[in-house]
Simulated scan of single mutants.
Amino acid sequence: MFLIRSGAIEGYEQLVSQYGQNPTTLLQQFGFSSAQLRDPNTYVSYTRLADLLDATALACGDPVFCLSLCAHQGPLALGEIGLSIRQQPTLADALVYSRQHISLHAYGVHVQQATRGDTLELQLSFDFSNASGLVQLMQLSAGQAFNLLSQMVGSAASSLKLHLPQAAPAQALKMPARYEGHILYQSEFGGISFPLIWLSRKPQLDEELLREHFQQRIQLLETIYPGNLQAQVCHIIGNLLPSGECNIERVAAALNLHPRVLQKKLQAEKTTFRELLQKTRLEVAQRNLQHGQLSITDLALNLGYADVAIFSRNFKSWTGQSPRDWKARYQYVPPNK
């Protein structure tokens, strides 16, 4: 099953409305709802999302709809993985991190590196296709990759190129200014390219963007879990686990609280950070074992375990079964078409 975070289409409803179309109707045609978009970390069908984007571009009459969408997106589009990528020591490390953790954002997409002269190409590929050849989905994915790299290199972004296999549209209603002069149509691949010498660069960390990310996250948590501190903590834990830096200090900072204040608030609710960490690890593990494509070793790493044996031992103490046995019993098997 191919899944992607709903945050990938952050701003979809607002943009569709600007074109005079009804986003609710379009979403419903493909089995989605506005409620699913409310939490950017909800996983939705990747294949149906691709079809939704193609239909939306047609309804809005804009062949570069998804580039327009990307141009207006904020930090929530890529979520925690986007923030963690920006915090790597060099761009080379950032690329390694993104390949290792891309499944946190989507299952069914891959990034391959290729060198052409003094240029590095990041080529995107998918494990599925549709009638259009995933035209809009490629725009979305390549556009988000472009946004992320441009934020990390700052003023040097003039050398960054956005590659699209599709032909140049005869007419676009709103060609985003940020991509003008950067797009290469009818490219041999979809993705981005930039000078090889950038690999040793230290990514720029935009403090304003960082503040925006945390403000959006706090607002999001208050919207989804109003007055529910435990749910908010579990949500943040789930996002931080893959970074290997999930601790009460990081979670408290995300909630704009001092760690001791968070501890006291949890104690008042008769729980602890440790208990919520265990609860979240179990929920994430079961969700991935049932629907995901990660190996058990990779799953253990994404849950913050340095040793898969420790994860397996803990999982068995929680469920009475090893991760492998639990997966064999409960893994989702899609019906034959």
Rank of each mutant, 00 (worst) to 15 (best):
E207H: 12
K270T: 02
Q321Y: 12
Q267N: 14
L122K: 06
H72I: 00
A92P: 07
S159G: 00
P226F: 13
F311S: 02
A167E: 02
D206Q: 08
I248V: 13
R287W: 11
A92S: 04
L173V: 04
G154P: 03
F128E: 01
D93E: 04
E208T: 09
L26A: 08
R313H: 14
N41Q: 07
A145H: 00
T271A: 10
E269M: 13
V96T: 04
T271R: 12
L289W: 13
D325F: 10
R287H: 14
W198A: 03
G82V: 06
S317K: 14
E180H: 01
A131I: 05
C70E: 02
A254N: 13
L52V: 07
P335A: 12
A300P: 04
Y330F: 15
G20D: 08
N288G: 11
S6V: 14
S84H: 05
V16W: 12
Q21P: 13
L221Q: 08
E80H: 07
N41C: 06
T25G: 14
L294K: 13
T42F: 14
C246K: 13
L196N: 09
W326Y: 15
L205K: 10
I236R: 12
E269N: 09
T25E: 15
T319S: 08
L262C: 09
W318T: 13
L160Y: 00
D118L: 01
L255Q: 09
Y12R: 11
L120T: 06
L210A: 10
N314L: 06
S193R: 05
L69R: 03
Q171F: 07
Q186T: 02
L229Q: 09
V251H: 07
C70R: 05
Q36D: 09
E275T: 13
T25Q: 15
K264Q: 15
S141P: 01
L148W: 00
R178K: 07
L149M: 00
S98N: 06
Y43W: 13
Q215R: 11
Y305W: 07
D307S: 03
G154Y: 03
Q112R: 08
G304K: 13
G320M: 10
L122R: 04
T119A: 05
D325E: 14
S322T: 15
S129V: 03
K264S: 12
A57R: 04
S6H: 14
